[in-house]
């Protein structure tokens, strides 16, 4: 019986592999991955599907969504595939009926909760948000509470939820877990913390020494440290917030075949190994972690209410913008 199941499974798998050469045409990817990573992902996909011509648009998740919403309104969404920061945004798109069901997606290896049960979106990574500091400083922060200490006055920088999807989830998580909710952000503001751009700005600021401490997604400082940048990433003791960089095909995709192939590629062992090579924690539980990370078990992720985060999306953005004067 087990063998039969395996045979069916293999048969289900093989057509996709066999048809790799037949998937062709143009594919438009909207992504929040940094340019270099997005290009590497696209290159790896194209090595496998040489007949697909991929172009991508990169921006913070809120930016990508703003662009997509304008295109929805113009009646011509350009994207086939979305690879953005968080599943909350995906859930919103799913509720509006914008996503396509990908029945054939192989999620056998993935634990429940990393993908949509109706197979509309699929997590590809685990990206946590923690603290970064410049190694030239003598103070080594270990907790979120450290960031509001007077020693760090005017030295903290963080991404804005207006620019970053991870930052929006981070705000929703922290305000749900820390005592006092938004008061923590008020305290940060009073301590001279700055919120301007996205995670990239934080990295630049801290690595360049313009600010000494930052709130940031894990992979940026961990991988820049390996390249010689003077930065160190910290998993704060209260825990970290996390996003899963989900991928999904739009219902309006002009090239559904190539889109599904792209989703399959990201979920495949090969796609997950690529994430590892790029310095991310892959969503696939069997893929190793890149150098510089603790083991999966040691990373403590704070719980958060996804439904509430979706309902409060605009409110959270506005509250943040109000506190930090954006």
């Amino acid at each position: 019986m087990k063998r039969l199941a395996l045979a069916i499974f293999a048969a289900a798998l093989f057509p996709t592999a066999g048809f790799a050469q037949h998937v062709s045409g143009k594919l438009v990817l909207y992504t929040s991955q940094p340019n270099t990573d997005a290009q590497q992902t696209v290159d790896a996909f194209k090595a496998k599907y040489p007949q697909v011509e991929v172009s991508f648009v990169r921006g913070g998740t809120p930016r990508i969504m703003a662009k997509l919403r304008a295109e929805f309104e113009a009646g011509q969404p350009q994207a086939d595939v979305l690879l953005i920061a968080d599943s909350v945004t995906m859930e919103g798109l799913k509720n509006e009926g914008r996503l396509m069901v990908h029945e054939g997606a192989d999620v056998a290896a993935y634990p429940a909760g990393t993908h949509d049960l109706q197979k509309q979106w699929f997590a590809t990574k685990l990206i946590t948000t923690g603290i970064v500091y410049n190694t030239k400083t003598s103070f080594k922060p270990t907790s979120w509470a450290d960031l509001v200490k007077p020693e760090l006055k005017g030295q903290v920088v963080m991404p804005s939820p207006l620019n970053s999807g991870a930052a929006l989830i981070h705000a929703a998580t922290l305000t749900g877990n820390l005592e006092g909710g938004w008061k923590y952000y008020e305290a940060l503001r009073d301590n001279g913390a700055m919120a301007g751009g996205g995670n990239g700005d934080v990295l630049k600021s801290v690595s360049g020494g313009e600010k000494l401490f930052g709130v940031i997604v894990d992979y940026m400082p961990i991988r820049e440290k390996a390249k010689g940048a003077p930065v160190e990433f910290v998993f704060p003791k209260e825990g970290v917030s996390a996003v899963s960089e989900p991928v999904a095909t739009l219902k309006t995709a002009r090239n559904p075949e190539a889109s599904k192939a792209f989703v399959d590629f990201l979920l495949s062992r090969e796609g997950q190994e690529l994430a590892l090579k790029q310095g991310y924690i892959a969503a696939h539980p069997d893929v190793a972690l890149p150098a510089g990370y603790p083991s999966r078990e040691q990373i403590k992720i704070m719980p958060f209410d996804a439904a509430k985060a979706l309902a409060d999306e605009t409110k959270n953005k506005m509250t943040f913008a109000d506190i930090f004067g954006q």
Binding site: V28, Y30, N35, R58, G198
Partner: peptide, 17 residues
């Protein structure tokens, strides 16, 4: 998608850190 200009790419590279 596909109609980025030099100015846009420079600015988005700068924004991406």
């Amino acid at each position: 998608a596909g109609t980025e200009t030099v100015g846009v790419v420079l600015f988005s590279l700068e924004e991406a850190g």
